[in-house]
Design a protein around this nucleic acid. Sequence first.
DNA 1: ACAGCTTCCTGATCGC
DNA 2: TGCGATCAGGAAGCTG
Length: 476
Amino acid sequence: MPELPEVETVRRLLEPRIINKTISLVRVNYWRMIQSKKEEFIPRLTGRTFKKMDRVGKFLIFTFDTDLILISHLRMEGKYIDGRLDEPDSRYARVVFELNDGTKICYDDSRCFGTMQLSNRATYLKEPPLSNIGPEPFNIDDPRRLLTIFNKSSRPIKELLLDQTIMTGLGNIYVDEVLFLAKIHPELPGNYLTLNEVKRLLVNSNEVLAKAIAAGGSTIRTYHAAKGVDGRFQQQLFAYNRAGKPCLRCQTPLAKIKVKGRGSTFCPRCQINRSLPLVVAITGAMHAGKSTILRLASEAGYPTISSDAMVKQLYAQPASVTKVAQLLHTTFPDNRIDSKQVLDIILTDPPAKKRLEKWVHPIIKAQVLQRLKEIKAPLVFVEVPLLFDAKWDYLAHYIIGVTTSYDIQTKRIKENFAYPELALKLAATNQFAVYQNRVDELIVNDGTQKELQTMAEKAINHAVNTLIKTAESANF
DNA sequence: ACAGCTTCCTGATCGC
DNA sequence: TGCGATCAGGAAGCTG
């Protein structure tokens, strides 16, 4: 929706346009949005004169010359558009208030999510929906009260901040901004929050909302506070709508995930989820030495996850045979997945490859995340061949890349693969070279096994030392 | 009690 | 270029 700053902007723009004007006629084009008794809606409003306009959280409160109260929630797309009576209604006018000075205001809402209800001055704050909403950040003096509530829940902090019964005002845009500024991962469970972090969340909520109000809110997509009036705050957004763009603090590309079904943009390096271990990802070209590095990390005593091994395990399951056959539009006569046959198909039929990846990647990703949750260690090494292509790089806090020169890769593949021609073709499709500049340490494995081992051990130690520093400098 | 999913709608944009 | 899939400033209302 419009969030608190946009609703406040609407209030400030609308109040002077309607104050002391009298409603001569009310037209309702979409009755489902009226939450109070429908038969009373038009009669109780007709002839009333607008007085003050208030706002509670994201609700607009219209007051009149009697004790009548109109409560309006704009939800995602709601807006008020004013015009003259001789003009046509706005395109998605759901409720129209005609006024006695020849003007009208149209409540416009393409998606019909908004609500209106009548109440009265004495009771409207004591009954739903307003009785259920929490304080605005401006009115919270003691962060301990919030800390107590957050700490009782294992829900992601983003969910808790969107819960208007705990605190009201933040929506999807400003929650991402506040979490970015406070350097807190959107999925950090509430019971991990420290007092220091809650203080940061409160300070930043206050600042972001105040600045956004001062800028007239954010005009994004279809939302305008009023006809011809655009907010300017979107120019100051750090996170929202910036997925893939460099973090304005550390230049890491911002990641986008779903939290409670809402798109959530954050910096994977500035906002670390400490309920999970820190991740050193190992990625790189085909047959370049990823598995060797992973094995060395394991031998050095660190927990490891191999997504390659997970894929092999998945393919070995009986249920996978029919699934893969169906995705590749083929059959496996031996009732087991024939890797040469699969390779053949994915090299000649790109859409088939896409279908297969669309099935495999989410399964493996879920398994990796599950393992990360289970591992009770501060740090884990994860081998992911297609880290960047599969867009998993946001899971990594340090990336070791490994590559080989073309000639040496060709030689090794010819010596080691049962179907070298197909393997070479597959190697040629690997895009790692494109992403090389995004790794923290690049190992060029053109020498002996012994030389690889030396480089890998150095890289492993460097990754660990860097991440220990990261964890120490994080201000919980 | 509560986590997770669906629903209320329509329009713009993305991706094969 | 067309056409289905996905996404969008929100929150209530289901289900298990």
